[in-house]
Nucleic acid binder design. Structure first.
Lengths: 264, 264
DNA sequence: CCGGATCTGA
DNA sequence: TCAGATCCGG
């Protein structure tokens, strides 16, 4: 028996918007710890990891570990039927091959339940080792999204270079080149507007902007984003989900770090 | 060495939106006087002339005259990467075949530079003679834009007729005819809402609405537009750019002035 | 001036 | 059906 009640239902709606562009089918894993997902994108290049801790739910009951395969587009369709301030409850009976989404309007006038068939999905749950990162950049999530969007109108890849002074996003394309430098800045009105750089050593890595732009679909979940970089390691782009957990995206750097090595 | 600093960067963004639909490639000319452009549209029917006087820039340095050929779509792409309240600086070294756009966010936290290759463009710089016009109509730019848009859903050409009483915009198409008369009106709350007609003699000329609608892309640059008409002369549609200059569009009238002579 | 929502074109 | 542009509200 599974029963998860989430008062802030809009959060689950945003989570699905943040994942579904990247992943079509995935297993949601439910345990006493929380509600989580780990999946590769359809081209097996990027990885997304979601955690919603049990403490973040108003009510959390999970009698035994469950792995529930779902088509994320279908989940998203169901969740679009929930109002932004609806309370969402997920229910599944043990051994059932369906999951039920229940939506309660704030004034309890409307109660909807949507039942969806589960599917069998080969899960390839990778252990993600905790790593030490050469540089960790924390910045406003909207600013990061804007930069990725802007750069993708010039080129296909972004070089992210971190020094003590700031973080530089660069690209190069047919029509020219672009460099955007964000300086470390902690003297802001609100903490979520700060750009903070924790750096052990300088790092410069290249990534496909296409994936970065998919990651920024999580922007509505958090006002800040954390980008963790190490040579030879996948970058981690993390959006914290208040009081509940996080959504993390992993993407391996392109080998051809050197701009001059670009073909064409 | 060229270095132009424009605090109100959004102005340059608007200028490009106002030109790029009409002109794909053009030379920007830079001299001590200012930053200017003159180009025919791609079908060589309309002419657009831009002037941004040097005094309008916060910093203006132009050591020697430069003519810089650019693809306006690419320029527009770059400028879209600037925030609306960014400070924009254009830089070019003498003899360089590139131009650099620099964008500074208001708080200086984000500094971006975009480098673009220049191109060689045959410039056909026409001297535009100052002319006396039979009629000059000044009206709110939004109203003119609305009229052109509305009429183009009925017909392909507009007849602009000016008398002392007002200006009439007429069209005719398969589904019917339309006439919009704007009366001279100076008794308004704000001067930019006035419709003012200076007329030496009545005039009635026909123009292709397709071009008129392109001209109205400059509407965000000015709250008023000035339309100068003379028989046998191209109309001038001018949008003043506050403190800096103007953007002017020239379009020859259609010969078949007479509505009844329309073919089809 | 920015963010959200809506509407429309591809 | 999705992404872009525009309009409106904070």
């Amino acid at each position: 028996m599974l029963e998860l009640r989430l008062v802030q239902g809009s959060l689950l709606k945003k989570v699905l918007e943040a994942i579904k562009e990247l992943v079509t089918d995935a297993n949601f894993d439910c345990s006493a710890t929380g509600f989580s997902l780990q999946a590769m994108d359809s081209s097996h290049v990027a990885l997304v990891a979601l955690l919603l801790r049990s403490e973040g739910f108003e009510h959390y009951r999970c009698d035994r570990n469950l792995s529930m395969g779902m088509n994320l587009n279908n989940v998203s369709k169901m969740l679009k039927c929930a109002g932004n301030d609806d309370i969402i409850t997920l229910k599944a009976d043990d051994g059932s091959d369906t999951i039920t989404f229940m939506f309660e309007s704030p004034n309890q006038d409307k109660i909807a339940d949507f039942e969806m068939k589960l599917m069998d999905i080969d899960s390839e749950h990778l252990g993600i080792p905790e790593a030490e990162y050469h540089a960790i950049v924390k910045m406003p999530s909207t600013e990061f999204a804007r930069i990725c969007k802007d750069l993708s109108s010039i080129g296909d890849t972004v070089v992210i270079s971190v020094t003590k002074e700031g973080v530089k996003f660069s690209t190069r394309g047919d029509i020219g080149t672009a460099n955007i430098v964000c300086r470390q800045n902690t003297t802001v009105d609100k903490p979520e507007e700060a750009t903070i750089i924790e750096m052990q050593e300088p790092v410069s890595l290249t990534f496909a902007l296409r994936y970065m732009n998919s990651f920024t679909k999580a922007t509505p979940l958090s006002s800040t984003v954390t980008i963790s970089l190490s040579s030879e390691l996948p970058v981690v782009v993390e959006y914290k989900i208040a009081d509940m957990g996080y959504i993390r995206y992993y993407l391996a750097p392109k080998i051809e770090d050197d701009e001059d090595m670009k073909p064409e």
